[in-house]
Amino acid sequence: MEFLGLVLIGCLVGLTTVLFGFGGGFVTVPIITLVDADLGHDTARVAAATSALVMLVNAIVATVSTKRSTLAHLKRRWWLLGLLALGGGLGAFAGRFAPDALLQWGFVAYIAATAIDLLARPGFFRRKAAVVDNVGEVSEGGRGIAAVWGVPIGGLASFLGVGGSVMTVPMMRRSGATMTVATTLANPLTLVIMSPAVLVTILTPAAIEAPGIVGSLDLVAAAALLIGGLPLIVFLRRRVPKIPEILHAWGYFVLLVAAGVVVAVA
């Protein structure tokens, strides 16, 4: 029954991947925290690592299914992508040595700070007019993220297992991107961040002994979530639902806060 429940939750993960660019982080961390609560002080570590694996696979599928015209917003952003990957590897490595309480409450603090920022600063719920740069192109999407933010974004995202959308989507929104463009581009950015993060996790010797746990990965939970999520990602990416901008932005905010609350009380 637990496996079937995770498959159904995987459908929700697939939905958030397409609509909000979360790649699963804001859903899988709380869910794995609840499922593996009996691991005690290792729970947050397993949740972060398993979330990274689920996000990576979801991000690969979502990116492959994305229109080339949308991915073009990341054209010539090699410095940003490289620094995101570097940050992702460093964050995953640091997470191996961090106390479990730091991972859990770091996740909650990260969510809380972002939620406050979205409410306090303008530009997220109602985007400003798109800016045209000096070569006549609309400055939105990936162009709204300075390369200097690559390592901090990648590091925090992989350290806590939340993916990069929590920082990249608001940045892209404030640069003039629509919610559809911002959340869609969050998937390839998550792919770049989580690839080295998952590699670090896999190569690290196993430290937790429990059924279905390999290293710090709960492979059974990850498989169930992916079985539920991947078909929905492929289906919805080809038929992206049309959602009013303001509702799309508030949906992102509500899911963000809900994930933080679940981890805080788990």
Rank of each mutant, 00 (worst) to 15 (best):
I32H: 02
I31E: 05
D117H: 03
R239W: 12
A266H: 13
L217Q: 08
V29Y: 13
A224L: 05
V138L: 10
S69K: 06
V200W: 12
R68S: 15
L225E: 11
A113D: 03
G95Y: 05
F124Q: 02
G164T: 13
A37T: 13
T63W: 12
V166K: 02
F107I: 00
Y252W: 09
V18T: 13
R239V: 05
G87M: 07
G161W: 08
A207P: 10
A259L: 01
L232F: 07
Y110N: 07
A92P: 05
A62T: 12
V18E: 15
F107L: 03
I202V: 15
V54G: 07
G89H: 08
A147H: 10
R68K: 13
P196E: 11
G164M: 01
L12M: 10
G161S: 11
L90H: 14
A49H: 13
T183S: 14
L103P: 02
A147G: 09
L12C: 09
G21R: 03
A49F: 06
R45A: 15
L230G: 04
L118I: 04
R68W: 11
M172S: 06
A37D: 15
R143W: 05
I111P: 13
I31H: 08
F3A: 12
G215S: 09
F3H: 04
F93A: 08
A221K: 01
L232W: 07
T16Q: 08
I145S: 07
L191M: 13
G164P: 06
S139D: 05
L6A: 05
T43Q: 11
T201Q: 15
L189N: 06
A112K: 02
D38R: 00
D133C: 01
V151T: 09
V27T: 11
V46T: 10
E209R: 02
V18F: 10
V257P: 07
R68Q: 15
V181A: 08
A98V: 10
G136Q: 12
L119Y: 14
N187Y: 09
A258G: 03
A120W: 14
L80F: 09
S51Q: 10
A113K: 00
L156V: 09
F26N: 11
L39Y: 09
R239Y: 15
G136T: 06
L203Y: 10
V220T: 14
P211I: 00
V220R: 12
V254T: 13
S158L: 03
E245D: 14
A94I: 03
L80T: 03
T184L: 01
A109V: 08
T180H: 12
I32Q: 12
G229K: 00
F125P: 12
I60Q: 06
P152D: 14
P170I: 02
A44W: 10
I111H: 03
D117I: 01
A197T: 01
P231Q: 08
T17W: 08
P205K: 03
G215K: 00
T33P: 04
K242R: 14
L4G: 09
V57K: 08
R121Y: 15
F124H: 09
L203V: 00
V254M: 04
A47Q: 11
L19E: 15
I193R: 02
E140W: 06
R237W: 06
V254F: 13
A207W: 07
F93H: 07
V13K: 03
V108R: 05
V132Y: 15
L189K: 03
A115G: 11
V263A: 10
